[in-house]
Write a protein that binds this DNA or RNA. Structure first.
Lengths: 181, 181
DNA sequence: CAAATTTTGTATCGGCTCGATACAATTGTG
DNA sequence: CACAATTGTATCGAGCCGATACAAAATTTG
């Protein structure tokens, strides 16, 4: 039996998020790009990864990125190893813009919840998002450290998929290659 | 301290909802209208109520409704009491379309959760949505029976704001006038 | 009651987003 | 080296949505 009332709440929440996403001259997708770049590791800073993240076409992503670059919020540089690939990065202005992230207004509401309730909410939502990604066959964009390709010896961290060494910081960021362990 | 990780999940969930909302030739807003009309009581079936519900301008709502009417999914009739007002209703085709609601795919995921977890999730989300509505000064669109204008004698139900009798069915639907008790 | 104001909705215009298609450049493969 | 696959850009057009102006009915005010 489908939990109609809960679906209604999710729908309403999603609409609220979308509606609050028009702020400081940016639209919801543009905010999302800034947020993504703030939490993605160095293997995931490409238009390709964003295309998967947003389920948008390459053209759409390309346009959004051009707009953000024109506004000085991100930079686009060509990768050294693969000269087709573009490496994205937040500029200082981009990081400052993120400090005015309208989504933070949800945070102010959430912190009034009991910490145990907050933790439970986070766990349930994480489960939901993960299962959804699984069903739709899309990437989960989870933490590098939660990935089945993640290896940790007593000396270092390593990605078995890309065969590269990982910093602690790398492993605590989101990776587009991530697959649940 | 703002729960960043949780905000990220909410953002991702919202994007998922929005993305899944393009189905059967309808867009997310059009689905939302159909869903709303299915759960709104007879005092709330107007373009005006939808304008508040979606935080959209009157013009935008008017256009969306015209499109849905053209597709035969809703009807628009003039109110008898106030001839400016329009009364909306789902057609049979509209109700059938709702049976293919893409949001139901979330339900399939959610039912795999423990029922206690499901209940907790619903409670937390309801709180969040309610607090958000309060802060932004908007209507909550809660259940008629949860309203401070709701009166129940041993013989009948009554709305003290509109001064009309309520059926049991009325009181279990969403009302645009609703204010938390 | 007449005039002004408020409420409710429509019509029209234009900016902008986004998907589709075609294309360019680089890398990988047989 | 020819051919395919990958990654990203350029261009076009449909459609969404906000803004403005307008129409019709109801309400308030003098």
């Amino acid at each position: 039996m489908i939990p109609t009332r809960l679906l209604h709440l999710i729908d309403r929440l999603a609409r609220d998020v979308n509606s609050v996403g028009h702020a400081h001259g940016l639209n919801p997708v543009q905010w999302d790009v800034l947020r993504y770049l703030a939490v993605a590791n160095r293997f995931s800073l490409s238009p390709k990864a964003l295309t998967a993240y947003f389920r948008a076409t390459k053209g759409t992503v390309s346009q959004t990125l051009s707009t953000l670059e024109r506004r000085g919020l991100i930079t686009k540089t060509h990768s050294g190893t693969d000269r087709r690939a573009v490496v994205l990065a937040l500029t200082q202005a981009g990081r400052e813009m993120l400090e005015r992230d309208p989504l933070a207004s949800f945070g102010e509401v959430l912190v009034t919840l009991e910490s145990s309730e907050l933790a439970a909410l986070q766990t349930s939502l994480a489960k939901t998002v993960r299962m959804r990604a699984q069903i739709t066959g899309e990437r989960a964009f989870g933490l590098c450290s939660d990935c089945r390709h993640h290896r940790r010896s007593n000396t270092a961290l390593h990605c078995a998929l890309l065969d590269v060494a990982l910093s602690v910081r790398d492993s605590l960021l989101i990776c587009h290659e991530q697959e649940a362990a």
